[in-house]
Nucleic acid binder design. Structure first.
Lengths: 198, 198
DNA sequence: CCTACCGATCGGTAGG
DNA sequence: CCTACCGATCGGTAGG
C-alpha cells in the first residue's frame, strides 16, 4: 500500500491550524506562539515552524481556518433562508449562536482579532479588514434586497442598517465573553429582531 | 527649600501610568511589558518595576489611570446635561468623541482590554468586569429616568436599551480602529440618536 | 532610582 | 518531522 504524497503533512497541518485558530481567540494572534501550538498538538516547535516557515504564515493560516469555520457555521446555514430580510435575520441569529455555543473558546475569531490588531498596521490587519468588509457587504446586500422588497421600515438605509447590526454583534460577543452571561446574547438578539422589524 | 516627600516618585509614577494606559490600548494588557514602559518613559526596567512591584500591579495601575481619563472625558462632561434622555445621549456622544479623538491611541481602553481579557479568568478580568458594570449601570439609570419622564418610546425596557447602546458603542470603537473611518463613528452616532428617539 | 544579572520563553536556524 | 542550539526579550532579583 503506497504512502500518499504529503498525506501526513496535510493531516498535521489541519491539526495545527485548528489548534492555532482556537488558541488565537483566547491568547490573541500575538500570543499565538509556535511553542504554544506545538504543545497543544504534541509536535515539536521546529516541526510546527517547518510547516509554515514563519510566525506570520502560521497566523495567516489560522485566519484561513477561522474563515472556513465562520462560513460553515454562520454563512452557509443562512443561505437556506431566502434573500432579503429572512437571510439577514438568519445571518445575525447564526452569528449569535456561533458565539454563544463557543465554536471558538474565545468567541468570534474575527471580533477578537479585529480588536487586537485594529490599532496595529500591517499585513495581518489588512487581511482582517478584508474579511470584515466581506461580512458587512453580505449584511448590506441582504438589507438592500429587503428594502427593495418592502420588508424594512420606510426610509431605512441598508448600509446604515448593516453597520448598526455589525457593531451590535461585535459588541454582543465582547460583552458575552467578559460577563459569561447568555442574557447578553439573547438581549441583542431581541434588539436586532425588533430593529429589522420582524 | 526642603524636598517634598515622595514628590519625585509620585511624578515618575504619573508619567509611567500615563504611558502604560496608552501602550495597553495598542499592545494589550499582556503586551504592556515593563521593558516597553521603561523605554517609553526613559527609565530603567528595574526603576519601573520597583515602583509597582509586579507586572500585574502595573496593569492594575494602568486600569486606574484609564478609569480616571474615562471619567474626565466621557462621564463628567455628560453630568452637565440633565438626567434622563439628555444625559443618556450625552454619554453616548461623549464616548464616540473620546474614541474618534483618539484620547488613547488604540481607542477606548476598556473596549480594547475587555476584548483581550474576556476569555481569560483572573483578577484583571474581574476588575474590568466591575468597571464595565458601572458604565452599563450609568446608562441604565439614565434610561430608567428617561422612561419615567416619558422621554422614550412606550414599552422601552431601560436595561435592554442600555445593553444595546453599550454593545453598539463597543462595536463602533472596534470597527473604527480597524478601518480608520470616522463615518463608522458618525453612522453609529446617528443610529443611537434615532434609537433613543431624539 | 541605577547596573548587572537570573531562568524562562520567544522566533528562527543548523543539521539530520 | 526531530534534537540542539542561537540571540533577543520577558518578569523578576541582588545589591547598592
Amino acid at each position: 500500500m503506497p504512502r500518499r504524497v504529503r498525506s501526513d503533512g496535510e493531516r498535521s497541518r489541519k491539526v495545527i491550524v485548528d489548534a492555532a485558530a482556537r488558541i488565537a481567540t483566547v491568547e490573541g494572534l500575538e500570543g499565538l506562539s509556535i511553542a504554544r501550538v506545538a504543545a497543544a498538538t504534541g509536535m515539536s516547535k521546529s516541526g510546527v515552524f517547518g510547516l509554515f516557515g514563519s510566525k506570520q504564515e502560521l497566523q495567516m493560516a489560522a485566519i484561513d481556518e477561522a474563515r472556513s469555520v465562520f462560513v460553515d457555521q454562520v454563512v452557509r446555514p443562512a443561505l437556506q433562508a431566502s434573500e432579503g430580510i429572512e437571510r439577514l435575520s438568519a445571518l445575525c441569529d447564526g452569528f449569535l449562536d456561533y458565539v454563544r455555543e463557543r465554536v471558538f473558546p474565545g468567541g468570534c475569531f474575527f471580533a477578537s482579532v479585529a480588536a487586537e490588531i485594529g490599532p496595529r498596521p500591517g499585513e495581518l490587519r489588512d487581511r482582517i479588514r478584508e474579511e470584515q468588509k466581506l461580512w458587512v457587504g453580505l449584511l448590506t446586500e441582504n438589507a438592500q434586497r429587503a428594502r427593495k422588497a418592502g420588508q424594512l421600515p420606510a426610509g431605512t438605509d441598508p448600509r446604515q442598517l448593516a453597520l448598526e447590526l455589525s457593531a451590535m454583534l461585535t459588541g454582543a460577543d465582547i460583552a458575552f465573553l467578559l460577563h459569561e452571561d447568555p442574557r447578553i446574547i439573547e438581549g441583542v438578539r431581541k434588539a436586532i429582531r425588533e430593529r429589522v422589524g420582524r
